[in-house]
Amino acid sequence: MPNPGRQVLGQTLAEVRVWVAVPEAALDPAHGRFTGQPVRVGPTVRRFAEDLTARRVRLRHAIPNR
């Protein structure tokens, strides 16, 4: 017998994937600017770019089956 809770969880996961796409896409332009051609250089900017990259990775891995 199919578990009705599994269907609800599947629907919820689909909704969460849609919600995650918004902030993920919002980070892309800034990430491209800071990791593409250098606009500025220095340790503070490098740390910011590394942190931004880490946040994008965490966000992309927060939702399974991406």
Rank of each mutant, 00 (worst) to 15 (best):
M1Q: 09
M1V: 13
M1C: 13
N3D: 15
N3I: 14
N3V: 12
P4E: 08
G5N: 13
R6F: 07
R6L: 15
Q7W: 12
V8M: 14
V8A: 15
V8F: 13
L9Y: 10
G10P: 09
G10H: 00
Q11S: 10
T12I: 12
L13C: 01
E15I: 01
V16S: 05
V16E: 01
R17G: 02
R17I: 02
R17C: 00
V18H: 08
V18E: 07
W19T: 01
V20Y: 10
V20F: 13
V20I: 12
A21T: 01
A21Y: 05
V22F: 01
P23K: 09
E24R: 12
E24Y: 04
A25M: 07
A25V: 01
L27F: 02
L27V: 02
D28N: 09
P29Y: 02
A30S: 06
A30G: 03
H31N: 07
R33M: 10
R33K: 06
R33Y: 05
F34L: 15
F34M: 07
F34Y: 12
T35W: 06
T35Q: 08
T35I: 04
T35S: 08
G36F: 01
Q37P: 04
Q37T: 03
P38E: 01
R40D: 10
G42N: 03
G42P: 02
P43W: 01
T44E: 14
V45P: 00
V45L: 05
R46Q: 10
R46L: 03
R46S: 04
A49Q: 06
D51P: 01
D51S: 14
D51Q: 15
D51E: 09
D51R: 15
L52M: 06
T53P: 00
T53D: 03
A54F: 14
A54L: 11
A54Q: 13
R55Y: 15
R56G: 11
V57Q: 12
R58A: 15
R58E: 15
R58Q: 14
L59T: 11
R60L: 10
R60P: 02
H61N: 15
H61Q: 15
A62E: 02
I63R: 13
P64D: 06
R66Y: 03
